[in-house]
């Protein structure tokens, strides 16, 4: 059932998922490994197609591994600008931006409550 749902997702979303899996991994990934790490849902041929599309775009690079390729994200050299962005977004007390950020800062109490919630959620 999930398979049907995933195959129907827009191409952009699939590209995003595959790209995220490449970045989350430490080493270059073969299409098979990407498919495994994404869990059930995508056919291996789909993953291969997406990877070669990303390679054509120049966002990932690849090297020969066995009979196929292993893909890895193109590392950026802009560590400095990443820091600049964080600084700009965190500036002073004015932390409310129009950019909806995924998580707000936690207080110590928040952290405790959150851990309790997650533990009870696991059961």
């Amino acid at each position: 059932m999930t398979e049907v749902k995933d195959e129907r997702r827009p191409a952009g979303e699939l590209e995003a998922s595959v790209m995220a899996a490449l970045w989350a991994a430490d080493a270059p990934q073969t299409p098979g490994q990407v498919q495994l790490s994404l869990g059930a849902g995508l056919a291996r041929t789909t993953v291969t197609t997406i990877l070669s599309r990303l390679y054509d775009k120049g966002v990932v690079d690849r090297r020969r591994q066995g009979r196929g390729y292993a893909y890895f994200p193109v590392q950026d050299t802009h560590g400095l600008t990443a820091r600049r962005m964080h600084t700009e977004l965190d500036r002073g007390s004015d932390r409310h931006t129009v950019l909806a950020r995924f998580v707000a800062q936690l207080s110590e109490d928040d952290e405790r409550v959150l851990r309790d919630l997650l533990e009870s959620g696991e059961q």
Binding site: A16, V60, V74, Q75, G79, T81, L89, R101, V103
Partner: peptide, 28 residues
């Protein structure tokens, strides 16, 4: 802040709608 974030995201290619920034600090 918006300009810096846009410039940061604009200078790299995106996969679908995802723009990944190589930084160890978790943020999204």
């Amino acid at each position: 802040a918006f300009h810096v974030a846009t410039a940061e995201a604009g200078c790299r290619a995106t996969a679908g709608d995802l723009c990944v920034i190589d930084s160890p600090r978790p943020d999204a």
